[in-house]
């Protein structure tokens, strides 16, 4: 349990993950990945090489004192800190996550700031909130463009985006990405399910404007574990989205010859080895992956695309062999 500090359990955890390609021509080796994510001098970048290269920055806290989103328009003020971190997978895909957790009720006035500082990542409502209302408000579609209501409620996307910008702004990167790709956004909300309600459940939605939403219900809400799962899901969703777009742009099937192969080469160089769903998901949340694999079936779609690319490469190789 995160930041409980002897108080009531957290009723929900929510966050936003932004995923993008690291703007550099070659993937970053370990030493440079560590330098890139060294956001503070006192805490080491966590680095792991099994089952893939994975680096995690120290966490950065941001203080907030604003309304929580709510579908009904009720405005519950909440105070506390949002925690954000950056994650780099295989020196190639960069993600920033901002998240907060909240109990269902808190003191009816703002307490001294020190009270919130010793609860990193916890935002406490002034008074009582309705979890389904906040969930619907948080995951619900927001009108595009400036919206005064959205501006006044907690903006995890802005915090994640600022962290991405801070990492990407470093001179270490040559800013020559090997291919074009778009950022994806995953907004997630996890509620605490009573014990004995069976395995965790999830609902994943891909909205038209590039926003993905995920609703999770899990017993024993472990904010760090859920955030890790959501990052992993966002990574694979980004990989799939990027590969689909690349295959689409290559006009595979309608363009003959080496053009399609050339267009697909970056996928082979930079993306195909990154697919490893569930690699960092703990046993408790593993059923969520199983569910997502059944429907919409991430890996099925990925395998099909990869097979098409490999087939195309093989076809292109044949004439050369005949000539030899």
């Amino acid at each position: 349990m995160t930041g409980g500090a002897g108080e009531g359990p957290q009723a929900f955890v929510c966050g936003e993950v932004r995923t993008c390609l690291l703007q550099t021509s070659a993937s970053l080796p370990r030493a440079e990945a560590v330098r890139l994510l060294q956001l503070r001098s006192d805490e080491a970048v966590r680095f792991s090489e099994r089952p893939n290269m994975y680096a995690v920055s120290p966490e950065v806290l941001t203080g907030v004192d604003c309304a929580l989103p709510a579908a009904t328009g009720s405005r519950v003020r909440a105070v506390g800190t949002v925690r954000a971190r950056a994650v780099l997978t295989e020196g190639r895909v960069l993600q920033a996550t901002a998240r907060l957790s909240s109990p269902v009720s808190g003191a009816d006035r703002r307490l001294p700031w020190g009270h919130y500082l010793v609860r990193p990542g916890v935002v406490q409502p002034l008074g009582r909130l309705s979890v389904p209302d906040v969930a619907a408000g948080f995951l619900g579609a927001r009108p595009a463009g400036p919206d005064r209501h959205a501006a006044a409620t907690v903006d995890l996307g802005a915090i994640a985006e600022r962290l991405l910008a801070r990492v990407l702004g470093q001179p270490l990167l040559d800013r020559r990405a090997p291919f074009k790709s778009r950022r994806t956004r995953l907004r997630w909300f996890a509620v605490h399910a009573a014990d004995g309600q069976g395995p965790p459940a999830a609902e994943f939605t891909v909205a038209a404007d590039g926003l993905r939403t995920l609703w999770i219900s899990a017993a024993g809400l472990d904010a760090a574990e859920i955030a890790g799962f959501c990052e992993e899901l966002a990574l694979h969703d980004w990989l799939l989205t990027t590969l689909i777009r690349m295959v689409d742009r290559s006009r595979l099937g309608s363009t003959a010859g080496p053009e399609a192969v050339l267009a697909l080469r970056p996928a082979v160089d930079h993306l195909l080895h990154l697919w490893m769903p569930g690699a960092r998901t703990g046993a408790r949340l593993a059923p969520l992956w199983d569910g997502l694999e059944r429907h919409p079936g991430f890996t099925r779609q990925w395998q099909t695309l990869v097979q098409r690319i490999r087939d195309q490469l093989a076809l292109q190789a044949i004439p050369f062999r005949c000539e030899a």
Partner: peptide
């Protein structure tokens, strides 16, 4: 970590 004035939403 600055103590946020009322209305700070992280943006």
């Amino acid at each position: 970590v600055e103590s946020p004035p009322v209305g700070s939403n992280g943006s």
